[in-house]
Amino acid sequence: MAAGDNTTTGETLSAALAAKEVEVTCFPEELREECDALRARYETPRAALMPLLWAFQRRYGYVSREMERVIAEELEIPLIWVRETVTFYTMYNQRPVGSHHVQVCGNLSCTLCGARETIRMIEEELGIAVGETTADGRFTLSVVQCLAACEEAPMMQVNDRYYGRLDRQRVREIFGGLE
């Protein structure tokens, strides 16, 4: 699978995204409690890896190479274990992404209901192509696989929310209502 393909494209980061990079060189105290709870909940330190990666992504928006090292040291597992899990799963961002990650479904049910036109329309509305981020760092646009909301096709996910039955007016309203 094209692991991490949402967020690894592009040679250099735009200034807006580069500004979202954070330096994490040792395990952050604010995540300590959560980390301890996860280690107690899972049978092995390695099994606590995915939820810990999620905790980092929630906090920092992505998981940097530095963070991978910090996590490996904290869990006392080889760095390669962290690396292979981060790169296998598409939802771990390896670089900062736009504040609003717009993910439009391009699978069959959505395509039958006009997803291809929807994607073109959203590209127009945002002024960027799929895989790009707006210059102000607000929006990143991706096409993704079925999000299990085919009854509302064509649909998209923006950060943690699903939006269905998209047309231009609705898309404008949705984007307009975001910060």
Partner: peptide
């Protein structure tokens, strides 16, 4: 009961890939 969040990989619906994933590994 532990609720475990996946990482976006269709293959992890396959039962043994799901177990690998629950162990923190690639699916």
């Amino acid at each position: 009961v532990v609720v475990h969040r996946g990482g976006g990989a269709y293959i992890c619906g396959e039962e043994t890939a799901l177990l690998e994933s629950l162990e923190g590994k690639p699916g």
